[in-house]
């Protein structure tokens, strides 16, 4: 288990957004978070790379252990944590720089590299995000000139370039067309051979198609976490069954 979440409670001011969450996430697999809007999926995802730190008024209790280290311990450096735990957002958010510089941005933050080494790393990351063939001749062009789907794959390449172990994806296909979505879904499956992927999705078919494990949330609580197959075919909890059969949410 690469991620262990133990009795996690999160408050936005007075609002209790995550209630006693216990969850284990296995290595090199795709875990999908599903649940109705506002149930805390993004909040939990963002506790895994401490992106909630910057929001004023957030209070967190409990432990999150990643690769054996408590990430909320005082000696944890968030920069080092986020290098290990990458994130892809809902809206593609490439920097207003060239395609090359977008991918090279992360590695440059974490230390100097020789030009040749960096070139090699950029190419490897773009290949891993299956974008290399489309952009190899226009690496100097602005990232904003790419299509939405290409931009999202660029963001994946950018995240991979710092060589993380875990990749968090928050509804990363919801702003994209069906073809780009399919591409990114295939890519996600492919990446799960090397990386641990935790994704939030509103699309239950997507969760069923690409995830190994599925976690169902309701009002800040984990209702059910199981193998995707099991969860969709024979859910244990009545609320899970109601949700996946489309009776609410």
């Amino acid at each position: 288990m690469i991620i262990e979440i133990d009795k996690l409670n999160l408050y936005y001011g007075d609002f209790h957004a995550l209630k006693n969450v216990n969850l284990s996430i296995p290595e090199r697999s795709v875990t999908a978070f599903i649940g109705p809007s506002g149930c805390g999926k993004s909040t939990l995802l963002r506790t895994l790379n401490r992106m909630n730190d910057t929001i004023p008024g957030v209070r967190i209790e409990g432990d999150v252990t990643i690769q054996g280290r408590n990430i909320y311990a005082s000696e944890t450096e968030v920069e080092v944590l986020r290098k290990r735990v990458g994130m892809v957002f809902q809206q593609p958010n490439p920097f207003p720089k060239s395609i090359y510089d977008n991918v090279a941005y992360g590695p440059k933050l974490h230390g100097r590299m020789k030009k040749a080494e960096l070139d090699e790393l950029v190419e490897r990351s773009l290949r891993a995000a299956s974008l290399w063939n489309e952009v190899k001749d226009v690496l100097k062009k602005s990232a904003w000139s790419l299509s939405g789907g290409q931009q999202q794959r660029l963001c994946i390449a950018r995240a991979l370039a710092v060589e993380p172990d875990i990749l968090l994806m928050d509804e990363s296909t919801s702003a994209l067309d069906p073809i780009s979505t399919t591409k990114i879904e295939e890519l996600t499956r492919e990446l799960s051979k090397k990386y641990t992927i935790v994704m939030v999705t509103h699309n239950m078919h997507q969760a069923a198609r690409i995830s190994d494990r599925t976690v169902f949330f309701l009002n800040g609580e984990v209702v059910e976490a199981a193998d995707t197959q099991t969860l969709f075919s024979s859910p244990v909890d009545q609320r899970t069954e109601d949700y996946i059969s489309g009776r609410f949410g």
Partner: peptide, 20 residues
């Protein structure tokens, strides 16, 4: 989103200010 993107890659606040 730009700032978050930078922080999510492990950038410090000053790196984000000066580079993004």
């Amino acid at each position: 989103g730009l700032k978050e993107g930078s922080y999510a890659l492990g950038a410090t606040r000053w790196q984000t200010i000066s580079r993004i």
